[in-house]
């Protein structure tokens, strides 16, 4: 199948700004699904609210566009009732970790099999460039014109501490790695988190004089390193990419199935 077989062409050109990294994530997501040879019918994409969340409208999978911060809660309901489906939950950094932070922690803690993709542009794109819990110290935003005094989360460390059994990070510059990691995250039998650094040239780029889309992607190329690289010791500000956690632990739906089986046997 070609890329166009996986999208709802009637909604193109899409609503994202020129050069928005969210489109690169969409592009890689389609290639990942195509390479897995999955049928569109086996996949449900659940999203909340934000520029990032609009991705669920563009893919021709089963899809659900829910409310801000709550995509994982809706996704949990879907997965519990139809565990055979592959559930993918793309979220913005605000969606996942500001308003949705609590859902995020507990979905990770339960190790329910789904793929959480955090499209981290370090800003609230949709509502006009307010800072998010990922903007980080000293970043500028419409609500922090003199520089943010909040510190940012480290999504990978947070996810690991909360119990996610697959945790990875990459960027929109590293498209082959992005496609491969989406694939690996989908295949993982447990809660997987993939953080993707994605450019918002319109707000984050403009407020922080980070340049246009190509320049922001150059920064992803130059300011990130593969996990475990020596370079990180010399320059601790470099951001690591790759897989941080991959482990097997009992998965929530399978455990729930066991509880049902055991107790049905008792009753008969």
């Amino acid at each position: 199948m070609s890329v166009k077989d996986y999208i709802r062409e009637r909604f193109f050109p899409h609503m994202w700004c020129p050069g928005c990294g969210h489109g690169v994530v969409l592009n890689a997501m389609i290639r990942a699904v195509e390479s897995l040879g999955m049928s569109k019918n086996e996949i449900v994409m659940v999203s909340g609210i934000g520029c990032s969340a609009r991705i669920s409208g563009y893919v021709d999978f089963h899809s659900m566009h829910t409310i801000h911060g709550r995509a994982l809660a809706f996704a949990t309901g879907i997965k519990m009732s139809r565990p055979e489906l592959n559930v993918i939950v793309p979220m913005g950094d605000g969606d996942a970790l500001a308003i949705g932070g609590n859902h995020f922690l507990h979905a990770a803690r339960r190790n329910i099999e789904m793929t959480a993709i955090v499209m981290n542009n370090r800003i609230y794109g949709m509502t006009g460039g307010q800072f998010s819990p990922l903007s980080g110290y000293a970043a500028a935003a419409s609500t922090a014109p003199y520089g943010n005094i909040d510190h940012g989360f480290d999504i990978a460390k947070l996810s690991e501490a909360a119990g996610a059994t697959f945790v990875a990070r990459t960027t929109t510059y590293h498209v082959h790695e992005l496609t491969r990691l989406i694939r690996d995250a989908i295949l993982h039998e447990g809660f997987s988190v993939l953080e993707v650094l994605t450019q918002c040239p319109t707000y984050f780029g403009r407020y922080n004089r980070a340049g246009d889309a190509p320049e922001m992607m150059e920064t992803y190329k130059n300011r990130t390193v593969a996990v475990g690289s020596e370079k990180k010791h010399q320059d601790p500000d470099l951001i690591e990419r790759g897989v941080f956690v991959k482990k097997e632990l009992p998965e929530y739906c399978r455990e729930y199935e066991k509880v049902i089986e055991k107790n049905q046997q008792k009753q008969t």
């Binding site: 070609s2 890329v3 166009k4 999208i7 193109f12 050109p13 899409h14 994202w16 050069g19 928005c20 990294g21 969210h22 489109g23 690169v24 969409l26 592009n27 890689a28 389609i30 290639r31 929109t172 510059y173 498209v175 082959h176 496609t179 889309a213 992607m217």
Partner: peptide, 13 residues
């Protein structure tokens, strides 16, 4: 095909 893979608008093949 890097242009195709990096296009945010799926505009190039």
């Amino acid at each position: 095909r890097m242009c195709e893979y990096r296009c945010p608008d799926l505009a190039i093949e």
